[in-house]
Design a protein around this nucleic acid. Structure first.
Lengths: 232, 232
DNA sequence: GTTGACACTGACGCAGGGTCAGGGTCGCAC
DNA sequence: GTGCGACCCTGACCCTGCGTCAGTGTCAAC
């Protein structure tokens, strides 16, 4: 006759696990001795090893319960099911690993390489870190809400950065971030921006919803920009 | 300003998840409006997307907390850690899948192929299903507690099944399973078994502990066998 | 003023146990 | 006979990442 500790050691599980299996009804509760200790026979060792074998194979305890008494056909069916579930899990895990592997430092964490290159270009052009953070956040929003428009956005943005006039206007906007909303220079800047925008075709690649979110993200930061928008 | 439902929809998570992130301190609690509803800015969308990106990559929430504010070096280190953890999980999963794939119907579930073949041989020799179940349980115990002795056991057992004298004695034991322990034929059977055993070398491949467990498993089943052992 | 969709908090549930807390028992040594 | 360490008992809370009630309040529209 074995105590619970001996049984557990023989099957290679913990005492706690054995009690857990009792509670789940997987393993029959054995007789108790005079002091209330559980006393096990060799049969329990066999039963426990069968449970452990299935559990080690990744079968959920609820399934093990049904499987232990199952007929071969039923059993084969269940094994196939479980394998499907495991295969799915494995695919998930691999997706996760690929994503983790793709994670680099800094900005590149949440946006694609092409997007990150845009930020790098802007850094090289001496835009402020504040401006670049806003840009990054906007790109994050685009990646999340409008992934299909990424190529268009990347192309448009790169073209814009090739355009000295855009760069000039953008630098002016950058400088205006911290201005007081009553700053007298704002109306002139608004006119400047409007003049530049007038020469550009409208982009339709992104939904109005996404645009409004991007806009509000930008405007949260700068009271001066909010004023600018009113001046348009 | 967004409600929790709008925020959740924009980031592609559930409302419940957002509240959970608040509770975990991952996402800052926003201002409430007059009725106590949470009101979010676009910043929250960005923050939530960052959280979701990491969570989708399989980073535990507790880790995300530390990562969101981490410096690039720290971050790279953590990413490496997480990838190691994921790789380990993936290996585990694959082990599970291999084991599951190896699971066939019936007896073969818990014992190796070679072991299962022994049971098949015994079935072909018309041993009772009761006897075969006991044998199976004994083999399960051996696989679990003495895996290193499996080849020796398989060899010995196959040799024994090749020996007509052993098969005769074993059939006699099989028939005796259900006998009353006071059955008058038992002493003769005991002598028969003893005579056969005397001609055999003792196997030392299996520890005394395992042997005693196997023996008790066998004896649990049959009072007549218990009597036989006393008669030795 | 009623309806349906949303919001709020709080609590329980899941898998598979780990880890106390607060006892009782066993076996051996002195 | 008693002291000690190693077991055993039950019960209850802890972990992850939310899902899913329950019971109540609020918003917007008809």
């Amino acid at each position: 006759m074995l105590t619970i500790g001996q049984l557990a050691a023989r099957a290679g599980v913990t005492v706690r696990a054995v009690r857990h299996y009792h509670q789940r009804g997987l393993l029959a509760e054995p007789e108790r001795d005079a002091s209330g200790y559980r006393r096990y026979t060799a049969q329990a060792v066999v039963d426990l090893i069968r449970i452990k074998t299935l559990a080690d194979a990744g079968v959920p305890l609820a399934r093990i319960d049904q499987l232990l008494g199952a007929e071969p056909e039923e059993f084969a069916q269940a094994v196939a099911d479980i394998d499907r579930a495991l295969a799915k899990k494995a695919r998930e895990l691999n997706r996760h690993r690929r994503r983790i592997a793709a994670l680099a430092a800094g900005d590149r964490l949440f946006i694609s390489d092409e997007m990150a290159q845009i930020l790098d270009r802007q850094r090289a052009m001496n835009f402020s870190e504040q401006m670049i953070r806003i840009e990054r956040d906007v790109l994050i929003i685009i990646e999340a809400l409008s992934p299909e428009s990424i190529p268009a956005v990347v192309a448009t943005k790169n073209a814009a950065l090739d355009d000295p006039e855009f760069v000039r206007v953008y630098h002016a906007l950058d400088e205006a971030i911290d201005w007081d909303p009553r700053d007298p220079r704002l109306p002139a800047l608004a006119a400047d921006v409007a003049a530049w925008a007038a020469g550009r075709p409208q982009e339709d690649a992104i939904s109005a919803d996404t645009v409004s979110l991007m806009l509000s993200r930008s405007l949260e930061f700068s009271p001066a920009w909010r004023r600018l928008l009113q001046l348009q």
